[in-house]
Simulated scan of single mutants.
Amino acid sequence: MSERFSCLDDDEREAGLEAAWSAVRDKALVVMPTDTVYGIAADAFEADAVAALLAAKGRGRHMPPPVLVASTTTLDALASRIEPYVHTLTEAFWPGPLTVICRQQESLVWDLGETRGTVAIRMPDDENALALLRRTGPLAVSSANLTGHPAATTIEQAEDQLGSSVAVYLDGGPAGSGVPSTIVDCTGETPRIVRVGAVTAEQIAELGVEVG
Rank of each mutant, 00 (worst) to 15 (best):
T90V: 15
T136V: 00
F45Q: 05
T153H: 06
D185T: 01
D160S: 13
M63E: 13
P84M: 12
L98S: 11
V141N: 03
P64N: 02
A56N: 04
A167P: 05
E159W: 10
A70W: 07
L29N: 09
A47K: 14
F45C: 06
S107R: 12
R116K: 13
A51G: 11
P191Q: 08
G137T: 00
A55W: 05
D48Y: 09
V119H: 12
A23T: 00
P66L: 02
G208F: 02
R122N: 13
D76S: 14
R59C: 09
G208V: 07
T99L: 05
S6P: 12
T73W: 10
D10A: 15
R122D: 09
T154E: 08
A92V: 06
A77N: 12
S164C: 03
A129T: 09
G137N: 05
A52I: 11
V199E: 09
I101A: 01
S177W: 04
A70R: 00
L112Y: 04
A42I: 14
P150S: 13
T200F: 02
A152T: 08
T153F: 01
A55E: 14
S181F: 05
E3H: 14
F93R: 10
F5R: 02
D76R: 12
A152V: 10
E210Q: 12
N145A: 10
T34M: 08
M63T: 08
I40V: 15
V86N: 02
P66E: 00
G148V: 03
G163A: 15
L130V: 10
E210M: 07
Y169F: 14
E3R: 13
E12K: 15
Y38L: 06
G117E: 03
E91H: 15
A52F: 06
D76A: 14
P191F: 04
H87L: 05
I101H: 04
L75D: 01
T190D: 05
A129G: 07
E3S: 15
A55T: 07
G16C: 06
M63I: 07
L54S: 09
T200C: 05
G96V: 07
M32R: 03
F45D: 03
A19D: 04
L54I: 05
